[in-house]
Each structure stands twice: as C-alpha cells, then as structure tokens.
Nucleic acid binder design. Structure first.
Length: 208
DNA sequence: AAGAGTTTCAACCGCAGTTCG
DNA sequence: ACGAACTGCGGTTGAAACTCT
C-alpha cells in the first residue's frame, strides 16, 4: 500500500471549504484549529482555518468599506497604540485586525503621497481629512454583505448571507454538542456528511 | 480601447506568547 | 520545570479590480 501524503491546500478558499469550516467551527467552537483542520478533512492548516474564520466567516463581521467615522477612529487609536491592530480592532466591532491593517497601509500610502506632492508644490499639509472626495455621501455600503467582488464570476462570487442561509437551513442542532456525540456520528449533521472527505475516506478504507 | 499604475483585499509567513501533558 | 503543540499577532505578498492616461 502506498501512502500518499496529500499536500496542504493553499490560496483562496472555495465556497465548499467555507461551508465545511463553518460547520465544524459550530461543532467544536472557535478553538483547536489544528484539530478542526484535521477532522474537517479540509486540507488546510489550523492556522489557515482560523484566519479564514476570523477574517471572513465569523458572523457579525461588517462587510464593505469602512465608514469615515471608523476611519477616523482607526487613525486616532493608531496614534495612541501604534500598530496594535488587534487592539484597535476590538474598538471597532465587526472589523478585523487584518482589515484595519490593510486600511492603514493604504491610508499611509495616500498620506505619504500627499505629503510628497505638497512638499514639492509647497502647499499646506493641514488637510488631515481622512475622507476621500465623494465618500461622505456615498459612504458605507456595509449593508451589502456580499463579498468583495461579486461582479467577478470567479471563485469568490458567493455571499456570506448565502453561506449562512445554507447552514441555518441545514441545522437544527444544539449549540454545543459533546465530543461523544460528535464521535459517534453527529454524522447526520447533513453538511458534514455531504462535505467531509474524511467520511468518504472512511468508506474507501472499508472497501479495501 | 488598451496598457500602466494604483488600490483593495485575502491569504501566507514567522515569531512570540500561552497552554498542556 | 520543560518541551511540544497550539494560538494570536503583525508584517508582507500577490492577485484581482479599479482608475488614469
């Protein structure tokens, strides 16, 4: 028998992987990521699973651009705490440290550009307006919980709403099942049945 | 219209801190 | 007390989308 060690998957997550991860996080909670990674049959590291959950799948995440208020808060807090992104993120409910970090980088770039320009043209630098032109009226389309670019028909063109709907509709399960329950086969947990290659693997093994 | 430059965002990596056996 | 495994954080990268010329 030849043991083929499957390579860990990297790169963008598929809708199916997301569903799978959400199911297993609901089962086991937001901890033991390595365990979840193994048990779920996702070919990902625990780290990768955690990151995906925290930055993307976690319910209650706000989607869409940051509002001018949020931007202002980020700048204020950054002036106090520096690059303590996770700390700053805690003051902005629904925002992740990654998001804030990303925002800060672009913000910083804009500022340095502005500065360079104003240095060269000797204009004043008072405009600390964090609000880009046109932002105030159009701001915060957070209501749309669709993923970044639903326009592109790529891998990512599905929405979190859709995922959560699918999950909700497929579960009437208590929030915290015991490990025993799980091990004896919460397998009737429909999404697990359908999704986890682990169970498939089990069947395949039996066949041998 | 097309190509270059810029922005945005998701994901990976390495490291440090924490937990557990 | 100690080492291994796990977790969380900050930095960085790369691809896709968008804007400008």
């Amino acid at each position: 028998m030849v043991m083929v060690k499957e390579e860990l998957r990297k790169g963008p997550w598929t809708e199916q992987e997301d569903l799978q991860l959400v199911c297993f996080v609901r089962l086991f909670g937001e901890r033991r990521w390595d365990f979840i990674a193994k048990v779920s049959g996702l070919n990902r590291t625990g780290k990768s699973c955690r990151l995906r959950w925290v930055n993307y799948l976690h319910p209650g995440l706000k989607r869409g651009r940051m509002t001018p208020q949020e931007k202002r808060l980020v700048v204020e807090l950054h002036s106090i705490w520096g690059n303590r992104w996770s700390l700053i993120a805690r003051k902005l409910p629904g925002r992740t440290d990654n998001e804030i970090k990303n925002y800060w980088r672009t913000h910083l770039r804009k500022m340095t550009k502005k500065q360079r320009r104003s240095n060269s043209s000797d204009s004043s630098l008072h405009d600390h307006s964090l609000v880009e032109p046109g932002e105030l009226n159009s701001s915060s389309d957070c209501s749309s919980s669709s993923l970044a670019s639903e326009k592109n028909g790529g891998v990512k063109s599905y929405s979190m709403d859709k995922i959560w709907n699918e999950i909700d509709s497929s579960e009437e399960i208590s929030s915290e099942p015991s490990v025993e329950e799980v091990s004896q086969g919460v397998a009737d947990f429909s999404c697990m049945l359908m999704l986890s290659p682990l169970w498939k693997m089990d069947d395949e093994l039996r066949m041998l």
